[in-house]
Amino acid sequence: MSNPRSGFGLIELMVALALGMLVVLGMTQMFSSCREAYLSQQSSAMLQEDARYVLSKLAREIRMAGMLGCLSIDRIVDAPPVFKTPVSWQGGVLRMISPDVALQAAKPDWTVVSDCATYARAYPGAKMTLAPGEMAFPLRELFYRFEHGQLKIGPNKTVLLDNVAAFDVSFGIADLAGSHSGLRYEYRLAKGSSLRSIRIGLTLRDRTGRVKDQAYLLEVALRNLLA
């Protein structure tokens, strides 16, 4: 009487190999899906971080736009003509005159020196020496340009942010001078004294294409009424 042989036959081996391949394929697909989801979340988070940085910077500068010291512009001696239009949006360029709140270590474009009671004078650049009772207000002319998918700042067009799909600016206009009621948004600023807020629309694009374009909206009220 012969002993039965132990082991696997060809059919059992083929079934085991097929099942093993299915398990490995499933695990590979699951890993690939998890990795793609992680990369998509990371791309979305990077876009949000970029938008948060740019919009927070813009918010600080918009709030203080047109703040030329403690006296009105008509009382500033030697005020440059651009002081009369401290905010403008034309040809894809947002221009503002704002206190030097973000670049304190850099040289300002102008300094307004005033005693906040009887006189004020504008000086080009920085004014280092002050008389007793005087205050200095460093000012900077800010430029934001949207060109070729990039947001650029300054007269030298330094790239602030890449992969920008859209950058729009509109102005919150009050119906009556000195009033905040009846606010409506327009793309053209006809009269500075009616400006109450600025709305920024920013759309960022993921260069890897993993996530859809992300749109962000910022509305900031001006603290200073313009002339």
Rank of each mutant, 00 (worst) to 15 (best):
E186G: 03
L176M: 06
V23C: 05
E186A: 09
L218E: 00
E141L: 15
E61I: 01
L222V: 04
A117C: 06
F143I: 07
T129A: 04
D100H: 09
A117N: 08
V15N: 02
R223L: 08
R223A: 07
M67W: 02
F8W: 08
A105P: 07
I73G: 00
S114A: 09
E147M: 08
L225K: 03
S181G: 04
R60N: 07
L183H: 10
D175W: 04
M96I: 12
L68A: 00
V15G: 03
F137R: 10
G20C: 14
M21F: 13
E219Y: 08
Y144D: 12
A45Q: 11
H180S: 09
L39P: 12
D162S: 06
T28K: 13
I200Q: 00
E186F: 06
L94Q: 09
S43M: 04
L195F: 09
A105D: 15
S193E: 10
Y53I: 14
P86G: 01
A45V: 04
F31V: 14
R95D: 06
F167V: 05
V87E: 00
A174N: 07
D109F: 10
W110C: 04
S6W: 01
D213A: 12
V112W: 01
K57M: 12
A79L: 00
L202M: 14
L39H: 07
L226P: 01
V220M: 03
T208H: 14
H148M: 14
A120D: 04
L68K: 00
L47F: 10
T118L: 09
T203C: 08
S197A: 15
I200H: 03
K157A: 02
D78F: 01
A18M: 12
S32A: 14
V101R: 07
G7W: 05
A106S: 14
D206G: 07
L160D: 09
A16W: 04
G182V: 07
A215Y: 08
M135Q: 15
V112Y: 09
K107I: 14
G125D: 05
A51P: 06
R145A: 12
Y53L: 15
V54H: 07
M21S: 14
M46Q: 13
A221N: 03
Y144M: 15
K191P: 05
L13E: 01
I76H: 01
S43P: 02
A117M: 07
L10I: 12
S197Q: 10
A102C: 12
L17W: 07
M96K: 08
S33C: 07
G20Y: 05
A227F: 04
V93F: 11
Y38W: 13
A126F: 03
S40D: 04
A16V: 08
R199Y: 05
K107R: 15
K107T: 12
T118F: 00
D115Y: 02
S2L: 15
T28A: 15
V24P: 08
Q41T: 04
A117K: 08
